[in-house]
Amino acid sequence: MDQALPNPEAAERVTSREQDATRLLLLLDGACEPVSDAEHATPGLVTAVGVVRTQVRLQKLDFWLRNPDYLADELLTKYEASNEARLLELAGLILDSEEPEVRRYPMLRHHFGAYEPLDDALAVLRSAGLVARRRRGTVSRVRQHDYFLLAAGQRVVREVLQQAPAFQYYVDRVRLVLDLADGRGGSQLKKQQYLHREYAEAARGDRIGSVSVRARARLEMLRGQAGDTGAKDHG
């Protein structure tokens, strides 16, 4: 077991159980896929309205949601591949603001990448009848966890957004995260996130460091290149 002392960044902003529960409920609502007829017939899932399959996928989507600096940097990567101006603009909206500092809640580096214990937050949602979790595999070996959004959970999401419009931030960010995920599974997302040096080199048990400084420098470089290209096109 890794006994290294925690990085000073481990003392950075952390979330409460209630914050995690709200964020995860909004993530499940935005990221879920349809439930099969067989699953609907399973006890406790009759009212299920959607599912996010595998804990790995849930954790990797949550990583981008909790780390706007990594989200913006990924937008820049996609911009470089597609040259789609909208992506550069979206990255700029994040990096030109204080969002990478104010909205960032770093995650721990675990054996298989970014990880944060979800059991407490999920227990809040499950005890309230908003979410259900099902394990696949055998008694001795669980292959994966699936997370089901129940109809009551969907109703609560609508009520939360109506009563507290500030939570629309997470709805918008979930859409952006899913657009970046582009249908990739958890393992594929993990490989993509490992491309960041700060992510890959973090010691197990430490919180994964920020990329905001590097991402902002990259943004300015790409803006400059885009400006040079535009000037040449009009020259």
Rank of each mutant, 00 (worst) to 15 (best):
L130G: 00
M221C: 08
Q193H: 14
E39A: 10
V56C: 10
M1D: 08
R214A: 15
L125G: 00
S16F: 07
P43T: 01
E89R: 13
L90H: 07
L27V: 01
E74A: 11
A85D: 11
L75E: 02
E84W: 09
Q19T: 01
R126T: 00
R207H: 13
V52D: 02
G44R: 06
E99F: 06
Y79W: 13
F148K: 03
S82Y: 07
R86K: 14
G129W: 07
C32L: 05
G227Y: 09
G235F: 10
R184Q: 13
P43D: 04
R223I: 02
L45P: 02
R155L: 10
V46A: 15
R135Y: 11
V142R: 14
K191F: 12
E74Y: 10
E80M: 09
T42F: 12
M1K: 09
V14R: 14
G44F: 09
A166D: 14
F167M: 06
F63K: 04
A202C: 08
R133I: 06
G205Y: 09
D172N: 13
A114N: 04
W64Y: 12
E98C: 06
L27I: 01
G235H: 13
E201K: 13
L71F: 05
A215T: 00
A128C: 03
G92M: 04
V35G: 04
Y199N: 07
Q154S: 11
E18Q: 12
V46F: 08
R218M: 05
D146M: 03
T42R: 15
S210L: 05
L149F: 04
Q163E: 13
S36R: 08
G129R: 04
V102F: 11
E33M: 08
Y169S: 04
K190N: 14
L27G: 00
D119A: 08
R104Y: 03
L65F: 03
Q55S: 12
A10C: 15
A164E: 15
